[in-house]
Write a protein that binds this DNA or RNA. Structure first.
Ligand code: ZN
Ligand code: ZN
Ligand code: ZN
Ligand code: ZN
Lengths: 136, 136
DNA sequence: CTTGACCCTGTAGTTGCTACAGGGTGCATA
DNA sequence: TATGCACCCTGTAGCAACTACAGGGTCAAG
């Protein structure tokens, strides 16, 4: 299949596919006489893996390691577990951090009673972290 | 005060302060005979405002608008409220989205029983979104 | 008078794409 | 046969919000 078909088949931007090839995440495919890229089912599966992992928030470097593992089925899978667990922990950290922000923002937004910017509690709160209740 | 002092006083990287000046978020300060930047309390307050807003997740463009408002105390503060509320909504969206990811990642990580990469349920789950329980 | 801490400008790197510019290819239609 | 049009190619630049130099100047202490 040509790059446009692969793009439609996987919901991936054409430029993104070329980008993944450039950074070595996808192998260089064969070329047609007109120098068009020509993909098979393996390329497609690999791209699906990459896209799905990206949707789950893995970084490109993490995906690179995961692909290395899945390329060599005789290796131990501990590494895959480690990467996924570390990523899960990161996501949980991020949620905790955003929850602090959310609470702080709620407090700040709730203070505005309308009126002039000079008296606005929102602007005042942004200027002064000591009004905050957490170390966000 | 010199840039290094302002940096220590606000916990902001020196390069970041220069960056904010370059993009017009901080005004150009006076210069000493040796061409060193020289800051006063107003610069400091403005930088504190910027850093605190950044810590709360506002974008530079949002902060620019908020600074404009606080520069003109006779304006109506509705705009400040609107920016902060919109930002709060975005943070809540992000938390919801990350919570989906977290649940999906927990399921995936829980499947690994150790062994060979070829049999690893983690790698299998990454290759196949239909095993997921949500549209993350 | 030299060492070290600081300051200056300007530019390039980071992450993960996205968006052209400026060209070539392939097929259908008038 | 010409001519659209959709698609493909390479290479480069842009986004956010910094961060990290390189290559130089300034200043006080020892
Ligand atoms: Zn207000
Ligand atoms: Zn705060
Ligand atoms: Zn496993
Ligand atoms: Zn999925």
């Amino acid at each position: 299949m040509k790059i446009g078909e692969l793009s439609r088949a996987t919901g991936t931007n054409v430029e993104t596919i070329r980008y993944y090839e450039r950074i070595g995440l996808l192998p260089e495919p064969a070329r047609s006489a007109a120098n068009y890229r020509s993909y098979g089912p393996d390329h497609r599966a690999r791209l699906v893996f990459v896209r799905h992992s990206r949707e789950l928030g893995f970084t490109i470097e993490e995906i690179r390691s995961l692909l290395d593992l899945s390329d060599d089925p005789t290796r131990d899978c501990t590494e895959a577990d480690r990467i996924a667990s570390a990523h899960l922990a990161q996501v949980e950290d991020k949620i905790a951090q955003l929850s602090l922000l959310r609470d702080e923002l709620k407090r700040i937004v709730g203070r505005c009673r309308g009126g002039l910017a000079g008296d606005c509690r929102v602007i005042e709160a942004l200027a002064d972290h000591s009004q905050c209740e957490s170390q966000h």
